[in-house]
Amino acid sequence: MTDVSVALGRRRWKRPPLIANPLLRWGLVVGGAVYLSFALGTTEVNWSRVWEGLPRGKQFLLAFAPPDFVSRWDDILDGLLESLWMTAVSTVIGIVISVPIALGAARNIAPLPVYYFCRAVIAVSRSFQEIILAIFFVKLFGFGPFAGVVTLSLATIGFFAKLLAEDIEDMDAAQAEAVRATGGGWFQWLNYGIQPQVLPRFIGLSLYRLDINLRESAVVGIVGGGGIGATLNTAFDRYEFDSAAAILIVIIAIVMGLEYTSGHVRRWVQ
């Protein structure tokens, strides 16, 4: 494209780069390369230990054929049922608390002080990973499913209230305005103007969170929060890979089943 090439009667074309500023472009490339080399350089990998472990990895994979459901069946069933109860209870509690917080955290319907308060609640409940919360709740409430339920409920609030609030902010304001113009009260306005608009998303999010809570309930047990996680932890500790495989298969099956049903429910709601 330079003057010389035009003068020669040939014009060259090169694809314009993704980032126009050459300094920034090369800076990013070099920075990325330097970071990666440093990161990989400081990552200590004990290759002999990895090498030693490979047979164990093979053993784990082989354990899937066939997995051992039988020898620890009582533990598996107990842990699994506990996980299911925890999932159900924490999802319901979390959602019930989330709804008012979501209403308060939607900028288009909440007054500013309420908005900031609810957004702060959401930010706090989102800032820690579930497991870290679980460690502290186990300290406070003792070992067992109650600590797990509190953890999962709190995590549900951060997730559910945030996404529901975003959906409320995205709704069609004209429909809500029309209901307000009829002279209905605040609750009637929610019930007629807003609820129908956010209901599909509400149900979709509930199912999605149910799915997440089930998966998370499998890990809060690792730190003492009840559920199947404890059983799984024991199985790995004792290198009982065939039992562990059985548990993982059950978890995957339940998650798949939930996903399948929730797809159906969502279509039905639409």
Binding site: R56, R215, I251
Partner: peptide, 14 residues
């Protein structure tokens, strides 16, 4: 379906 922490448990063992 399997949480990172469970993968970690498994991989630490391996």
């Amino acid at each position: 379906s399997i949480n990172a922490l469970i993968w970690a448990l498994l991989l630490v063992a391996i």
